[in-house]
Amino acid sequence: MDALRYVFKRILLMIPILIGISILTFFISNTIPGDPARLILGPKATPDGIEELREEMGLNDPLYVQYGRYVNGIFHGDLGESTYSQQPVIDDLERYFPATLELTLFAMLITVLIGIPFGVISASKKDKLPDQFTRVFALLGVAMPAFWLGLLFLLLFYLKLGILPGSGRLDNGVSPPDMITGMYTVDALLTGNMVAFKSALIHLILPGITQAAVTIGMITRMTRSSMLEVLQSDYIRTAQAKGGSENRVLYGHALRNGIMPVITLLGMTFGHALGGSVLVESVFSWPGLGKYAVNAITYLDFPAVMGVTLLIALLFITVNLIIDTMYHLIDPRLKYN
């Protein structure tokens, strides 16, 4: 009950933020130089033709009228039409979003599978060799430009060794699995299409590891410091004194309590990964939101920029809400304030 009330309150608080976000994106997109009407009609357009299209597109109305129309559209699932792809922006987003989600989730999976054990090991062997090694590794991860790491991977594994693919989501000649979620690996598994699954998984490896490199560093550091704190507490010492096996104490007792801050950080890393997708997708020609955003900016595609920014912001705050709620469910001590 309390949790429900908390979620309800948080959703209420999201409303002003969403309004703010829409105003901000609308304002930003409107500042983009260049006249969309002129861009659509191309270099041979007559001034009269441009004026006519501007009127038709509603570009001559006052800004607040345009904004009102935009918000009204959002409620009807209408984000305008991309001036570049000539498709409704919402359709474009639907097409590109699953690719980004798949990549981000894959990167998060790698992050959790590597980052958390590394953090735990580092903390349990504090100041010994494994700790030193992990810390340097994590430090490099955080300071690493992901897009550069991607370039190096591309160079080594694709161009030099030729063992992994360097772009796209599937091999040439492999047709995508039947669409269910839009995430190829998931859809391929669900439909039992092992050829597509293998191809999709192999294509995920390089961008996934690239994307994960930074977040692994963040999660490792967080897990380490959080575990160190827990390991020094009395109840862990008691468990050790009672003669529990080292692994049982470490993973059974300590990790359960040390994981809380890590969960919060996972939410932040999800946002980080979403943002990072812009660069990583650009390196690996991954047909996701990030690539779409870069394209939209290159072609001054005003509705597309706005749509993609809005969607990413919405994802970001939704994930934060989920994480906060989880946090409250896991830790019974927290009050819902």
Partner: peptide
């Protein structure tokens, strides 16, 4: 809150593009 509801690089990207 509003500014922090975007991943930093996305917001910076939109502004820089604008």
């Amino acid at each position: 809150d509003i500014f922090l509801s975007f991943p930093g690089i996305i917001l910076a990207m939109s502004i820089a593009a604008a």
